[in-house]
Amino acid sequence: MNTDRIVDLLTSRAVLTVVPSTILLTLAFVGIAVVVEGLVVTNLVTRLPIYVLVFALAFIVSLLKLDNRNRDGMQILIATAGIGFAASLLFGLATEGAFYLAYNPTALLRRGLIVVFLAAGIICTGLGIWGIRHWREFVTATTASPSTTASDGGMNDAYK
């Protein structure tokens, strides 16, 4: 067993994926709290064009990545619009959370909410990584044949 390779792989995944994603999601959770509480830092109007630009960039990158003659064009368009919206929403909420923490850093630390938001960010990062790796299981319809279900109760499928 090559333990150096395993350590390098885990380190690169942790550093390049888990840490930035957790920070982004933690800031987005802070941003949600800020928006819900109505504590948005001033000059939001000056940041809105940046959020639109993030939407446009995520839209075009995902469109170029997903575009394929063998795929349905409407599905590609819906997916890219969803990716663009999700990216701009996540970026916008994280930005608002970062601005709030920059202007009022002790507000969340006093109540200990930053730890809760960090825990939620870690959990959502794990679920996101798992969801990206297993998304095909949710979009493909698998139906068991009645004979398989009747004979072994579906246990044969569980071990494939």
Rank of each mutant, 00 (worst) to 15 (best):
I76D: 00
A158H: 09
T80H: 00
L63E: 06
L90W: 00
F99G: 00
L57S: 08
N104S: 13
G31V: 02
R47D: 09
T149H: 04
L89A: 13
S147F: 13
T143M: 04
T149D: 02
L101S: 05
K65L: 15
L108D: 05
L44Y: 12
D4Q: 12
T42D: 14
P146D: 04
T3Y: 14
I6V: 15
F85E: 08
N2M: 10
L44D: 04
G38P: 09
R69K: 15
L25I: 01
L93A: 03
G31R: 05
V45F: 11
I129T: 08
V41P: 03
F85W: 13
T148L: 13
K65D: 12
A107G: 02
V52A: 15
F138C: 05
I122D: 07
L27C: 08
A14I: 10
L93H: 05
G153Y: 00
F117C: 01
Y159K: 04
P20D: 06
R71Q: 12
A14Y: 09
A98Y: 09
S12W: 13
L77Y: 02
G82M: 06
L10F: 12
A107T: 15
Y159H: 05
A28Y: 02
A79P: 06
G97T: 06
T46P: 01
T46W: 11
V41Y: 05
D157Y: 14
D8P: 07
I123F: 06
G154C: 00
T46E: 13
A81C: 06
I50S: 13
N104R: 15
I132Q: 15
R13I: 11
I114Y: 06
V19M: 08
E37N: 15
T42A: 14
R13Q: 13
L9R: 13
L127Q: 10
H134K: 11
I122L: 15
R136M: 12
L89F: 10
S145L: 11
G154D: 03
Y100N: 01
T3N: 08
F91R: 02
A33N: 14
V18F: 07
G73F: 08
A144P: 02
N156D: 12
I132D: 09
L113D: 06
A141H: 09
G153F: 01
G128W: 05
F99R: 10
T42W: 11
F117K: 02
L127N: 03
N2P: 11
G92E: 00
A120I: 08
E96V: 04
V40Q: 14
P20E: 08
A94T: 03
L9P: 06
G97H: 01
V116H: 03
E96P: 01
P146A: 01
M155P: 00
I60K: 12
D72L: 06
I129M: 13
R133H: 11
G126F: 04
A119P: 01
A94C: 00
N43L: 08
G31M: 04
T142F: 11
A86S: 09
Y103T: 12
L89K: 08
S151F: 07
G97Q: 00
A141V: 10
L113R: 08
A94M: 05
F55D: 00
L66A: 06
Y103A: 14
V30D: 01
D157I: 07
